[in-house]
């Protein structure tokens, strides 16, 4: 039985992600944000379900499509938005941008723009916890594309032989950039790759937040109990293109996109909460309105924040006296 408070928190986080991503896309299309942007709209249930199974002192590493994961682990949207705006007040002082947001105090060990690169790193976090004798666990998000990298295989093998407290969460959105899964790998369920490393693997509906939460909780419990790593594949869908500006139509049919949109993870969860009498519509509406304001305030904060000084570019390369 999941406590009501937890159920409501999950709803709130899903809506926070959705509103943040919608706003970021809107701002990007208006030209307000530099660089490029990878939207995670449609994948909220994976981020939130998985992170809801973690404690605040557990660790997480995300990907280039990481806004949702980072919000789910508790990051502040004002600092995130300021980073997207490349402001001095952003999470990374404007040095990382959309793809590299980190909050080490919240256990967010960052996001990497290199597909698959987070998996070897999460092992090190888990190893540090193992060596220190804590019961913290570490979770790594990655996509279906990453499951074909050498890093994926090296990392799963190392995690398994060292029995590391790691949860590998694959956000299988069915496309590695534009390449459909059936073209880039012969298997349908990525979780079967766990067998090759002698660890448990499971494939779940990644659009159902409670399903993801339960699967991750089981894996977290096993990892905390020194039972080693787990591979969880969450089947989900990226509503937009690979990046904002890619309509995503060259390699996906309109019907397919619409079909997945009809399985909107946020709407589904909202309906679930109401159907089970967890809360009333007005409670959810109140959350929606509050988050609408929160995101508007985050944008205000970001807009009103100072730009970094150009010379700030020379700081933070090294720790200590040496400045290159």
């Amino acid at each position: 039985m999941i406590p009501k408070e937890k159920l409501m928190e999950m709803y709130e986080k899903m809506v926070r992600i959705r509103r943040f991503e919608e706003k970021a896309v809107e701002l990007f299309l208006k030209g307000a944000l530099p660089g490029f942007l990878h939207s995670s709209i449609g994948q909220e249930a994976v981020s939130v379900g998985a992170c809801a199974a973690l404690r605040e002192d557990d660790y997480m590493i995300s990907t280039h499509r990481g806004h949702g994961d980072i919000i789910a682990k508790g990051a502040r949207v004002d600092l995130m938005m300021a980073e997207l705006f490349a402001k001095k007040t952003g999470y990374c002082k404007g040095k990382g941008g959309s793809m590299h947001i980190a909050d080490l105090d919240l256990g967010i060990l960052g996001a990497t723009g290199i597909v698959g690169a987070g998996l070897p790193i999460i092992n090190g976090a888990a190893l540090a916890c193992q060596l220190k004798g804590t019961d913290q666990v570490s979770l790594c998000f990655f996509g279906d594309g990453a499951s074909n990298t050498g890093s994926f295989h090296e990392a799963l093998n190392m995690a398994s032989i060292w029995n590391l407290p790691v949860i590998f969460v694959c956000q299988n959105n069915l496309y590695a950039e534009s390449t459909p899964q059936w073209v880039h790998q012969k298997i349908q369920d990525i979780s079967v790759r766990a067998q090759g490393y002698g660890i448990p693997g499971v494939s779940v509906d990644g659009n159902n937040v409670l399903t993801v939460y339960r699967a991750t909780s089981e894996a977290v419990e096993r990892a905390r109990g020194k039972g080693g790593p787990t591979l969880i594949e969450c089947k989900t869908y990226r509503w937009l293109g690979h990046y904002v500006g890619d309509p995503g139509t060259a390699y996906r049919t309109k019907e397919e996109v619409e079909q997945w949109k009809s399985r909107d993870p946020v709407k589904q969860y909202r309906a679930n909460l109401l159907a089970n009498g967890v809360c009333e519509e007005k409670d959810l509406d109140a959350i929606d309105r509050r988050l609408e304001r929160e995101i508007e305030e985050a944008v205000e904060f970001a807009r009103n924040s100072p730009d970094p000084d150009p010379e700030d570019a020379l700081q933070d390369v090294y720790i200590g006296e040496y400045i290159p």
């Binding site: 690169a117 070897p120 790193i121 092992n123 090296e154 190392m158």
Partner: peptide
Amino acid sequence: TPISEAAIVGAALGAALLGM
């Protein structure tokens, strides 16, 4: 370690991020 140079160096990084 296994013969997995990316995993070796990646693990070193992850551990370092946690103060090792």
